[in-house]
C-alpha cells in the first residue's frame, strides 16, 4: 500500500454501522439521564451535582470522540497526542475556578 501517502488504512470494523447506531442510542440515553437528573436534583446545590453532570458530559464526549471521530480505531500515539494536552485545560479550569471563587470573596 505504499502507492499513495496514506499507508495501511487503520482498520474500520465491518460492523461500523451497527456501532454508530449503538453510540447514538447511548448518547441519546445519556442526554435523557442528564435532563432527568437535572429535574430530580433541582433543589440541591452542591459541587457533587456539578461533578456528576461534568462526568456525564465527559462520558458523552468519550463516545463522540471514540466512535464518531474514529479515535478508537486510531494508533495509540495519535490518541495520546490529542488527549494528553487536554490535561492543561483541566489544570487551567481548576485554577480558574479557585481564582473565580477568590475574586467573588474579595469583591
Amino acid at each position: 500500500m505504499e502507492h499513495s501517502e496514506h499507508l495501511e488504512h487503520t482498520e474500520t470494523p465491518s460492523n461500523m454501522k451497527q456501532q454508530i447506531w449503538k453510540t447514538f442510542w447511548i448518547l441519546f440515553a445519556l442526554t435523557i439521564v442528564d435532563i432527568g437528573l437535572y429535574f430530580m436534583l433541582l433543589s440541591t446545590h452542591s459541587m457533587l451535582k456539578n461533578f456528576l453532570f461534568i462526568a456525564l458530559g465527559i462520558v458523552k464526549a468519550f463516545y463522540i470522540v471514540a466512535v464518531f471521530m474514529h479515535m478508537k480505531f486510531e494508533r495509540k500515539w495519535l490518541v495520546n497526542f490529542i488527549v494528553y494536552p487536554m490535561l492543561f485545560v483541566v489544570f487551567l479550569v481548576i485554577l480558574m475556578l479557585i481564582e473565580g471563587d477568590f475574586t467573588g470573596l474579595v469583591r
Binding site: L92, L95, M96, E99, G100, T103
Partner: peptide
C-alpha cells in the same frame, strides 16, 4: 468582570 481573568488568559 475581573481584570485578573484577562491576565490569566494572557499569561496562559
Amino acid at each position: 468582570g475581573s481584570p485578573i481573568l484577562f491576565q490569566h488568559l494572557f499569561w496562559f
